[in-house]
Design a protein around this nucleic acid. Sequence first.
RNA 1: GGGGGAGUGUCGGAAUUGGCAGACGAGCAUGACUUAGAAUCAUGUGCCGCGAGGCGUGCGGGUUCAAGUCCCGCCUUCCCCACCA
Length: 932
Amino acid sequence: MEPYNPQELEPKWQRRWEEDALYKSSIDATQPKFYALTMLPYPSGDLHIGHWYAMTPSDARARFKRMQGYNVLFPMGFDAFGLPAENAAIQRAIHPKTWTLRNVEHEREQLRSMGAMFDWEREAVSCLSGYYRWTEWLFLKFYEMGLAYRKKSPVDYCPNCKTTLAREQVIGEERICERCGTPVVKKDLAQWFWRITKYADELLDFSTIDWPEKIKVLQTNWVGRSEGAEVVFKVAPENLPADAKPGEGDLVVFTTRPDTLWGATFMVLAPEHPLVNRITTASQKETVETYQREATRQTEIERLSTEKEKTGVFTGAYAINPVNGARIPVWVADYVLMTYGTGAIMAVPAHDERDFAFAKKFSLPIPVVICPPDWHGEELAEAYHGDGLVVNSGPFDGVMAPHPAVEKVIAWLEEQGLGKGAVNYRLRDWLISRQRYWGAPIPVVYCDQCGIVPVPYEELPVLLPDDVDFMPTGESPLKYHQGFLNTTCPKCGGPATRETDTMDTFVCSSWYQYAYLSPYYKEGEVAHADSSPWDPAELKYWAPVDTYTGGAEHATMHLIYTRFFTKALRDAGLLDFDEPMLQYRCQGIILGEPRDGDCVDVTGHWEGSAFLADHVQVISFKDRESWPAPVRGETRVCGEVLDRDDVSLKVRTSDGAEGEITVVQVGERTTITEPGREGAGSMADILYHLEVEKMSKSKKNVVAPDELVAKYGADTVRAYLMFGWRWELGGPWDSKGIEGVVRWLNRVWALVMEEPYRRETPVPEAERELLRAVHTAIKAVTEDLEGFSFNTVIARLMEYTNALGKAKEAFWGTPRWDEAVSGLLLLLAPIAPHLAEELWSRMGKPYSVHQQAWPTWDAAMLVEDMIEIPVQINGKVRGHVTVAADADEETIKAAALAEANVKATLAGKKIVKIIVPRGRLVSIVVANQDGE
RNA sequence: GGGGGAGUGUCGGAAUUGGCAGACGAGCAUGACUUAGAAUCAUGUGCCGCGAGGCGUGCGGGUUCAAGUCCCGCCUUCCCCACCA
């Protein structure tokens, strides 16, 4: 038999499919459309196994949909603007464009080797002017709509990336940069923002989309809507400066619990609150100013202190509680944030834990909660949980809190003119300015006469100049490019300067799903305000995306931005739906495989507790069988490397769980050799012991898909990535597990290619069984592909392959066999497209397997004639009986009671009842003779 | 502190949504074919026990004829948010 040779047949079919434009997608009104999309890669130079893990199941599903009769669009492109290109330019004197396009070229080839059904005619690369002129166009549109504005404010700045970041791109408590992990600092800068907050409420509505619960929760928390009231407290008149304007003393606070207003005993302002300096009394001035300075510095330094002891100072001023006229002190404290609510709070120490802690520390009044004497246990318990009846609150005593007390108090505040119902969000407007070169220019000009002037639509694109000098500091070269910088004002014709900031790359990827529909639309033609960035006919047919797949790490970045974009584009009249992706599913992450370290055999001598090495001999972890036994001797140390840095090795110098560890110092004069390796080795080449960790180049635990494809073929890699893990969870790579898939695909090959040595005569029962296996497989594979359960898809296909292996001797050469094997190949086509195509053609079937209809199952074929059902006695299985599948309950009961082991177990027991649920199981309940 | 995942053999993971726990693989063991190995094929493989049998889905309760699955109370772990008023 000719062996299965994926290295030969995969490129062959890839060429054929391309020649025949098999995956070209075009509008066809007679067919239902299906827009399948998977997140596009950033062209960093090499696709890693994670890209394959994300993309191949998505491809399999797109292929499945196509066979089901949908007109499928499955495009691919590159998110090609971004910092790494610019850093490469600085480090290696290569232009970002050259670097990027070279990487695109390479990754495109890698993607082709996957054998995916990407429609390359629709490829879009975001750094090309044909693409980014529409990104600029959209900026102008948003500006026109009032969705883009420029504002000076304290913003997050990454000192390493040398640029500002959006709130979403600052991660965690350490407030580190999403890209490089450097802690960000605050800077006061004039920046461009997009008014995503306008859509805050709409972003909370997921009712029309099928997205994972996890992502919906993440986005909901990110938007952080809270309902409550704004209440106006007035600063005591004597604390206001003489030049105070009317209304200046109004201190607006936001609270979610207006029903606790009567319990407010003091107020707290954020240190940055504008009123602080106006109301602080002369005697408190110095204290307050010192505190403000410290608070500013605190936000700039890392705020890592886990012990968050409350700090604050008294302003000397008082305010009047509007609901009861109480005169309460106004404090300044950094636990109140200027960026949330109004930067001022009323403090209710009886109700709020933080207020309580603050009041206690500074001896501020804490009112005692008084329970009415007639409260019972239940009411007290509720009060303990924050629920209860309102007390000491004027007109609201006796009302149930928090509801309906909150609503009643809000209505009352509005009636009295003291406040109003209000909603607050955690979501901030999206800061899109980046102080870097490699991004889409912000199409705006600054004129001394006219101020901010948008570049006219007709003048787009504002091109990134190629002839720029990159600074080692990373500072944008656009600032020094006179040709780019100096321009004339489109309004008055006078001299003006261009905006040198570029847009966040997340802007480019916020609309790429529409860019694919007609890439670089109308390139070379002049655009106008009423143009469209895409072909309206394509949009009408394909959009929105039906199924989107990609990493969950984008939950509060790309995935929220693109929803915002779609809503804004809808309001601009550019499209007529509300959500970009109707269904979204996310995959997990493939982590590095745990491994032993290399073994080192070191000669040297001891100096104190450290062993100084003269010579290090490395024995690779791959040759574990030939490792010498661990040693810790006077002049020799030997064992597995557990860890490594530039100058030392941690070596495990004893067997067993305890693991004695010896530190080996490696100096200038130490020589390192490895058998089979030319020349002197270096510390960086020594592999150290790894637990499960993320893949990274420095740990040398990266799995390269190209190598796997070269060794096993793309179909095997595809199938293994679908089989090895629950797709949505991911997990550590297992280099042995792939062998199971190799064996399977070889069995599939042999199934079609190898005549059986032995023949059997088919019996009718075997034929029914074969048919049942076909239809069972069709049903399971169809349902599991639909439900993104890729690992069980493969398991079911393996089972089916095994069943065919058993049937082969009896059915080889018969129409039944042909039918059964064809079924397997059709089900296999989305998973292993090359192998399926090859075997399909070798069976003499018409090209192409990918243009065949997906098989359907017949429910009648799934029914078995005889079934084996378990018999339980008091919940334990005591035997099995085989009965006709359609046997009635009485027949089944009789069969069960006649079964030998059941009979034996029942001896001397009294049957209480017998249950036969759905005819699939017999459950007998017995009691002992003595009635127990 | 708040929110959301996850916890099943040695490992990856299955379990018509309450119905025989461990599908499908990996690994391991034994056997066949080989001078030998690799490959392949066959068989076995949750744990304890020679056996009958008992015990088993993070832990403790509960509901039920029947619980990995439902309810109550915990533990561990990962992720997100966090002086958010």
